[in-house]
Computed example of a mutant assay.
Amino acid sequence: MKIFTFLLSCFASVVLADDFKLINGREYKDATVTRVEPDGIVLRTNAGIAKVYFVELPKEYQERFKYNPAAAAASSAQQAVNQATTAVAGRGQPSEVISHGEQVDINQHLALGNVTILEFYADWCGPCRLLTPSLEQMASSDPQIALRKIDIVRWGTPVAQQFNVNSVPLVNIYNRAGSLVGTVRGADFDSVKRYVAQAKTGG
């Protein structure tokens, strides 16, 4: 019975693996769908994890995963609300998403005179969901800190290539003069706090 169950599990895994070809011609070979969201699907491949939006997929995939444009729009609107600044009693610096995959000039978004935290994240990234609330709380409660966020969307987007991002979350901390003080990889909030303290004193 155990052997049968094992074989059945293996068979199920093989069935779930599939090739996905986007409208622009890009392909994800032997990809497994790990999660279906209102606006897209999260795929796991040998190269890592990536989110593919339904608007990038042919109609057959949209129908297969029950794509609903209205639900996707509502989900995107809710995400925008969740990412908006929630300053405490007007004390904190606003947080701002400055890129959704496109290249960006970070120098145009540094809060000179204050400490800037730059977070690279993705909606499908579990560790990002653990770290982001702590960063937002830090920025909203401290008027000397500004949080800037870059959504890489998926691996290989222009902004991910621009900053050579190969893992998320990734956090850069800049001092009041706009100089990079340190980089933290992973959901290591304690290291972020140490670099922020260093940045406040000049880095």
Rank of each mutant, 00 (worst) to 15 (best):
R64W: 11
Q79A: 12
A87Q: 12
V52C: 06
R148K: 14
S13K: 06
V184G: 03
N172S: 06
V184W: 04
T32H: 10
G178N: 05
L16F: 13
L16I: 13
A77Q: 10
S99H: 09
T157L: 11
Y67K: 00
R154E: 12
V14Y: 07
N82S: 02
E37K: 07
V14N: 00
T116Y: 03
L170Q: 05
F65S: 03
G48D: 03
E63H: 02
C10N: 11
Y195F: 15
L110N: 01
I152D: 11
R154C: 06
F54I: 14
H109V: 14
Q83L: 04
A17E: 10
N114A: 12
K2C: 11
K59R: 14
G90E: 15
Q78K: 07
D105C: 03
L130R: 09
P69H: 01
Q79R: 11
P38T: 08
G90M: 13
A197V: 13
G182C: 11
I98F: 00
I98D: 03
K29C: 05
S13N: 01
G40P: 00
I41P: 00
A72E: 02
A199N: 09
K29S: 12
T5H: 10
E96C: 07
C128P: 09
L43D: 01
I173H: 01
Q162C: 03
Q83Y: 04
N82M: 07
G203D: 01
N114S: 05
Y174C: 04
Y67Q: 04
M1L: 15
R129Q: 14
G90L: 06
K66T: 06
E102G: 05
N82V: 02
V55K: 06
G92L: 09
V168L: 13
A177K: 12
A12C: 12
A12L: 15
A73I: 06
G182E: 09
T116W: 04
A77P: 00
D142T: 12
E136H: 08
D105M: 05
Y61S: 07
Q83P: 01
G48Q: 09
V168Y: 00
D39K: 05
A87L: 10
W155S: 12
A89M: 11
F6V: 15
K59F: 14
S95K: 09
D18R: 07
S141Q: 13
D105Q: 02
G90A: 03
A139N: 06
Y53G: 01
I106D: 02
G40Q: 05
L147M: 10
Q144V: 09
G40S: 05
S141H: 11
L131H: 10
A139C: 12
K2E: 15
Q93F: 07
N82K: 06
V181K: 00
A71Q: 03
T157S: 12
V196C: 06
V192T: 07
K66P: 03
V81T: 09
Y53N: 01
A111C: 11
I150Y: 01
E56M: 03
T157W: 00
L7W: 08
E63Y: 14
D151Y: 08
P38L: 07
V165W: 03
A111W: 00
F4A: 10
T34N: 03
N24C: 03
G92N: 08
E96G: 04
F4W: 14
V171N: 00
R148P: 01
A89Y: 10
H109E: 03
E60I: 14
V192S: 06
R148Q: 13
K51S: 10
L170D: 07
G126R: 06
A77T: 04
E136C: 05
A73Y: 05
D18M: 13
L118Q: 08
T132H: 08
L22S: 02
V33L: 01
L180N: 00
